[in-house]
Design a binder for these strands. Sequence first.
DNA 1: TTTCATTTTTAGACTAATCTAAAAATAGAA
DNA 2: TTCTATTTTTAGATTAGTCTAAAAATGAAA
Lengths: 221, 221
Amino acid sequence: MELVLSFTEENYLKEIYHLFQESNTPVSTNAIAEVMNTKAASVTDMIKKLSAKGVVSYQKYHGVKISDKGQKAALQVIRKHRLWEAFLVDKLKFNWDEVHDVAEQLEHIKSPLLIKRLDEFLGHPKYDPHGDPIPDENGEFKAKPQAPLSTVENGAEGVVVSVKDASASFLQYVDKMGIYIGAKIRVIEKVEFDGSLEILIDNKRTVFISKEVSENIWITE
Amino acid sequence: MELVLSFTEENYLKEIYHLFQESNTPVSTNAIAEVMNTKAASVTDMIKKLSAKGVVSYQKYHGVKISDKGQKAALQVIRKHRLWEAFLVDKLKFNWDEVHDVAEQLEHIKSPLLIKRLDEFLGHPKYDPHGDPIPDENGEFKAKPQAPLSTVENGAEGVVVSVKDASASFLQYVDKMGIYIGAKIRVIEKVEFDGSLEILIDNKRTVFISKEVSENIWITE
DNA sequence: TTTCATTTTTAGACTAATCTAAAAATAGAA
DNA sequence: TTCTATTTTTAGATTAGTCTAAAAATGAAA
């Protein structure tokens, strides 16, 4: 019996995977509802379907855990998403703030040959345009050791490795500040009161960023 | 009010466009049901929806005609389908018999920027791998003057311009015969009884093909 | 350990796309 | 012009995914 997931099921599974990665504890119905932009009642229904397909395990009232089978499936969707993002930026000259919505559609195209050839065509890229690792055909990947700017100490220095918010508004703001994957950053001052930061970019420009922004920019440790 | 079509509506509209092109008379419910691999009752329901959106005009019991608005929409779907086919063959090294099913999925991706950039990336191709013309952003295209092998006369000669069946089994057979877009063909003999043909390919090889095959191979006039 | 705000699930309904079976309309033959 | 085979439409169900409102379970505070 081969696993076949609908477009919608794939989207749920992908988000459950991400949420489970973050906490490593069962994911709550409400948490899923929020990221999926839907209602808790809808999530409960979908969880039952995913559970029946064996991609998550589910205890009523106690949240869901993703199964090994589910992880494998989720990682293949994530692989496709990130490969398409790489294609859009490297080959079609998209800006990194333009790729997410299109990749959300492209990731559901079903064709193993397509993904194999796309990967070859791109030269087996290891990271997507936001710095996130691209899982291989077996779901394996390695992320660069990294930490959010919000957690590093005064005077700390590093290179931007990835950005964790894929929204156009965030990425355009990041662009305007002169921040990009590979930029060198030094934390000049961390304001205790609100967690905002003063940072030096590429030894050239000093800017202030909010705590929220600093949580979404990750640098080498 | 902007026209938004579902995945399914786009597929119906595309097929109605093709059927209407062939005959230039109203398209019957059964004809649509056959190409869509569905039942007449389902077609009736869908026709009502398409009619409400103004992409077809519909007279109960007398078939549908596609409207100007519908033609434009259908041609954009066809443009996307053929651009993706060109991409798969030219860039990802697909064989021409491997592209159809994948292009059927890719043609529904919604992103004007993606299609613009893909077109540029491919160098604004005018024809897809099967020899069919690719409509431009305004839906305009020009097919090469052509006729099916089944209608040309004994002794006639021409170059293969397009093939009209996109199935893998047909295209693999065509490959094996040594026929391809651009091949030079001379009709040696046409059998009156069953319409089968003896043809000479590239002045090298003589083969026999059935009437059905000859209807799907089109050459210059 | 009882209470109660919060979370989760259930129940019932809606839309899109599909189906089967039955009814209605059409068109061609007698 | 009437009959009848064929086509088309309608009626009523089904499935996937969603919703609202109400019921049930949880767990933290008193």
